[in-house]
Amino acid sequence: MKAEFSPRRRVFLYGLLCVLLIPFVFPTWWMVTSSVKPISDIFAFPPQLVPERYDWTTYSKVFELQPFVKQYWNSAYIAALVTVGTMIVSSMAGYAFARIRFPFANAIFMVVLLGLLIPSEVTIVPLFQMFLKAGMVNTHWPLILVPIFGAPSVFATFVMRQFFIALPAELEEAARVDGLGRFKIFRKIALPLARPALASVAIFTFLHSWNLYLEPIVFLSSADKFTLPQALTQYTDAYGGPMWNIQLAAATLTALPVLIVFIIAQKQFVEGLAHTGLKG
């Protein structure tokens, strides 16, 4: 049954929601509007919520000062590979932990979960040394391999395992009677049914990779290999001071695909969040 509110109560409720909206909307609004302001207007007092003067050249400078298209591509393809890789690894690992009986399965799963408790700052130095020995520093491999086999994948494995545990055992048994082996049961029955869980894994993995900051600044040193979060820090003047308006223009362009995808797939995002039992 839909709750009915009196008009007065409704006005109050909408008012409250509008106030609560401010901390969420204001940073994005400030980023977008400041990206077209001359730098002096960004710091003007009183603050200009709507720009009084527009400077659209900031956007062209984003591309002039750095190989921004290349960096955009770097972020996109790394995030795509990480997402696909994590979906494959986590779905298979999650299925194995949930459905295959093997010795010490729960103990091994606990050990895997412990990976979530170790901050990336702790492992970054040994990882750097490892990739240095493998000749992979200043390549994209660490940014692809670390998330696929690291903490993000552990979290994704946990999500997938929880889903597969809830899958009725009779479906697998029916598939066994129908003539399917273990891998086909996984591919033809379990995986298609796991689409909601896979969608949440995809959303979170993509966002994690897209926003990754620490690993790129440790592993990458050439501008043409940079990813977007790292590239944003490079818009500085001759004295190392940030060129705020250009940086915010680049930040707007960086946030754009995520915003568009969010607006289009709002429902899936929210369901994905609900599915993982986590807050955004």
């Binding site: 009779e170 029916a174 598939a175 066994r176 009677v177 129908d178 029955i189």
Partner: peptide, 15 residues
């Protein structure tokens, strides 16, 4: 799969 049987489950187990 090799026993040449078919089974109907309590909760039907339809895909």
């Amino acid at each position: 799969k090799d026993r040449d049987i078919a089974m109907v489950f309590q909760n039907y187990a339809l895909y």
